[in-house]
Write a protein that binds this DNA or RNA. Structure first.
Length: 421
RNA sequence: GUGGCCGUAGCUCAGUCAGGUUAGAGCGCCGCGUUGUGGUCGCGGAUGUCGGGGGUUCGAAUCCCCUCGGUCACCCCA
């Protein structure tokens, strides 16, 4: 007698069950194929890391300052569930020092303690790639195009790409000083939060969506106008590459993104078919200082993350990724106790035929209903007569007027294969 | 973390505003019509502590408070 269940998935988490889980499989499978085809290997990282790994990477960011699942294990070690994928991959790079360029992809959960809503979860899942060890602008292009290709392969068309460059150590400090001076003169025009924090995070103010900040920064200096020669050339090559490959984008000088580690190229994909505010389906950028930050040798890097849940919502909104219902080829109906179903189903499966059966000695009628609903094309039926004569009845369930034939038990697999061919 | 809305069978929902006999529908599920045959059709059946807890009342799905969950916006981002 069911009553209110004592437990449910924690707030902001969710179960993925069949048939929805098949879409996950398909999505990850497509991505794995695309990444593999481009020379990326799978990386699997721990779901928690030393707390310091993430603190080092984003001490000025909301994600790290107020959204982390941080805890101590029984040995008193400070740990945290990963809030994003890049830090773990970079930590693994520093630890193992693979030869470069190191091109990897992952599909893994991330954890952020936020107020849940549609498309925003406390445990969500990301597909991502990282490339470590190359400053080549063509890597930036490869990474961005890879994400775009995934959307295309899935049939998600209504996607916009925002592109920006954050500069590097040579030009960013000067720009930030310029921006800081600009903001200092109009602190009182900013929103409440940034009136306090504009000094420490001037770039954040550009990203603020509040109208006060928007208006106050309308005439602010743009990073893109202050790139040094090297960053400007790099950015130009990135844009040329995207143009050559037919990937459209919009320059977005306000695109700052949520992590401190970005340098040069940053980008964000939004699904415009999504109604809600949570329409960013992927984003990333270059992080040429991050490996050193985590104790490795100077090594440039770039990567992106794509939110699986949001991407699936975008698929829904566009009617993409509609999968046919999963079916087996054959359903084994056994009215004589179950042993025949047990043996025949495995004979078929061992021969590569997808087969299923009922349990619990259901009535013949009930088993036939299940056979029908399963979508199987054939029913293998064993009743008392077949049992006695060492045969089975093979019935066609899809069309052919339910044509039925009697087949010797040792010829079942061969005949089934013929009929399915 | 802040604010608005919502929470009735497995699913989608009616009933809540004006508290009152055993809480309903459709779909799905199970069984039977056919003790050896599915799809259609017909008949029958099961399942709800009306999210949870407390309160008001003779009486609460319905009113009040708290809480949990969802959702929308802010914020942030995938």
């Amino acid at each position: 007698m069911p009553s209110a269940p004592p437990f449910r998935a924690p707030s902001g988490t969710h179960d993925v069950l069949p048939p929805e889980s098949a879409r996950w499989q398909a999505l990850v499978g497509r991505f794995a194929a695309l990444a593999g085809q481009a020379g990326y290997g799978l990386v699997v990282n721990p779901v928690f890391e030393d707390l310091g790994v993430f603190q080092r990477v984003g001490e000025g960011t909301d994600v790290v300052r107020k959204e982390m699942y941080a805890f101590e294990d029984r040995g008193g070690r400070p740990l945290a569930l990963r809030p994003e994928g890049t830090a773990s991959v970079v930590r693994a790079y520093v630890q193992h020092r693979p030869t470069t360029p190191w091109k990897v992809w992952y599909a893994a959960p991330s954890f952020r303690y936020e107020r849940p809503q549609a498309g925003r979860y406390r445990q969500h899942h990301q597909l991502g790639v990282e490339v470590l060890g190359s400053v080549d602008a063509d890597v930036d292009v490869e990474v961005v195009v890879l994400a775009a290709e995934l959307f295309g392969a899935l049939g998600v068309r209504r996607v916009t790409l925002a592109l920006n460059s954050m500069g590097d150590d040579a030009c960013r400090p000067g720009y930030v000083a310029l921006l800081g001076a600009f903001l200092d003169e109009r602190t009182d025009q900013l929103c409440a939060e940034h009136r306090q924090r504009a000094g420490e995070q001037p770039l954040r103010v550009l990203d603020c969506k509040r109208t006060e900040c928007r208006e106050a920064t309308a005439g602010a200096p743009r990073m893109l106008d202050h790139l040094c020669t090297a960053c400007d050339a790099h950015f130009r090559r990135v844009r040329d590459g995207l143009d050559a490959l037919g990937i459209g984008y919009q320059l977005e000088s306000r695109l700052v993104r949520g992590f401190d580690y970005y340098t040069r190229t940053t980008f964000e994909f939004a699904a415009t078919a999504l109604e809600g505010a949570q329409n960013a389906i992927g984003g990333g950028g270059r992080y040429d200082g991050l490996v050193e930050e985590l104790g490795g040798p100077p090594t440039p890097g770039i990567g992106f993350g794509i939110g699986i849940e949001r991407l699936l919502l975008a698929c829904d909104a566009e009617g993409a990724l509609r999968l046919p219902e999963a079916t087996v080829d054959v359903w084994v109906v056994d009215a004589v106790g179950g042993a025949a179903a047990r043996d025949l189903s495995w004979s078929l499966r061992r021969a590569g035929v997808a087969a299923d059966r009922a349990f619990d000695e259901r009535s013949l009628r009930a088993q036939m209903k299940l056979a029908d609903r399963s979508g199987a094309r054939l029913a293998v039926i064993v009743g008392a007569d077949e049992q006695a004569s060492g045969t089975v009845s093979l019935r066609q369930l899809r069309g052919n007027d339910g044509a039925q034939e009697l087949v010797a038990r040792d010829r079942v697999v061969a005949r089934v294969r013929e009929l399915l061919a």
